[in-house]
């Protein structure tokens, strides 16, 4: 049975405002290291006051670039997240799954709003 590592986002960031991409990288590094060591990870959102998609895109969304979705679903759990933060997290994770399936779709200028690609 795998070991479960408990990580607390506020402790890694060093304060309860978790908004910048740079702070997100600190969390990403801890989670990805534990995943590579074969551990399960319980991510605690306890104490977070402010949270942005910018932070979550690097802290957690980036995991979908380097690990399989099935593996992340099996090995990551979230605890102590208030409903607003859970909402932001869910949107960030859904975006990351979509993005890494087809990154070019998110850089393209071809869409229903702009019409023809201007490239």
């Amino acid at each position: 049975m795998s070991i479960t590592e408990k990580i607390n986002i506020v402790l890694i960031v060093g304060n309860n405002i978790c908004v910048s991409a740079e702070d997100g990288v600190k969390v990403y590094d801890v989670i990805s290291k534990a995943l590579r060591e074969g551990k399960n990870i319980e991510i605690s959102f306890k104490g977070i006051e402010d949270l942005t998609s910018l932070f979550l895109n690097t802290a957690i969304g980036q995991l979908y670039n380097n690990f399989q979705e099935d593996e992340l679903k099996k090995r990551l759990t979230v605890v102590n997240a208030d409903p607003q933060d859970l909402d932001t997290l869910k949107r960030s994770v859904d975006r990351a799954k979509d993005y890494f399936k087809d990154p070019e779709r998110f850089h393209s200028a071809t869409d229903e709003i702009l019409g023809d690609d201007n490239e």
Binding site: T52, S53, L54, N57, T58, G61, Q62, Y64, N65, R91, S92, R95, A96, D98, Y99, F100, P103, F106, H107, S108, A109, D111, I113, L114, D117, N118, E119
Partner: peptide
Amino acid sequence: LQKRLSAEDAIRWAISGKTTRRGRSGGLG
């Protein structure tokens, strides 16, 4: 991204959830 858009279309592009960051999901903010 080397794409030329008018200033107005560029805002609509950004607001539609696109991103200029390559290799990192974004455009959600």
